[in-house]
């Protein structure tokens, strides 16, 4: 558990340092994620302890969004002033993105992989 947490923090740190040094326009933790992903593919299997720790962290991911979400309090005026434009954009864009992505993948998938589930 501690080793896994240390590994995640070290990867985040490495990602942040790489961004500082190269100016790549990516968030530091994303670079850490890409490094870990490459390592896991190369290794072929995920260490058991790391699997447990990441599961605990990711299954409570929603809680981690709350403090940032409360930050809306500093934007109440802006959001209230534009609430119709904001809601229409959010809803329409989500619907369009989901439909376009779903049908693009469905049309491109080999026939053998297609699953016409009834649900």
């Amino acid at each position: 558990m501690i080793a896994s947490i240390a590994a995640l923090l070290v990867l985040q740190l490495i990602g942040t340092i790489i961004i500082r040094l190269t100016g790549i326009p990516l968030p530091g933790p994303v670079v850490g994620m890409l490094i870990l992903f490459a390592y896991l593919l190369w290794r072929g299997a995920t260490p058991h302890a790391l699997e447990g720790t990441t599961k605990a962290l990711l299954s409570n991911l929603a809680l981690l969004f709350v403090p940032a979400g409360v930050g809306i309090i500093t934007h109440l005026h802006g959001v209230a002033a534009h609430w119709i434009a904001l809601s229409v954009t959010l809803i329409a864009s989500a619907a369009i993105a989901i439909v376009v992505t779903g049908f693009t993948l469905h049309w491109l998938m080999p026939a053998a992989e297609k699953d016409h589930g009834s649900a």
Partner: peptide, 30 residues
């Protein structure tokens, strides 16, 4: 908000390691 965030930042901080951790489910779909 900054007073609230003085306390709540400890939760927010975990978003970094959680992002790194996303590599694990991704690798399981290799």
């Amino acid at each position: 908000y900054h007073e609230y965030f003085d306390g709540a930042q400890f939760i927010s901080f975990l978003l970094g390691p959680a992002t790194v951790a996303l590599a694990v489910p991704l690798a399981s779909q290799a």
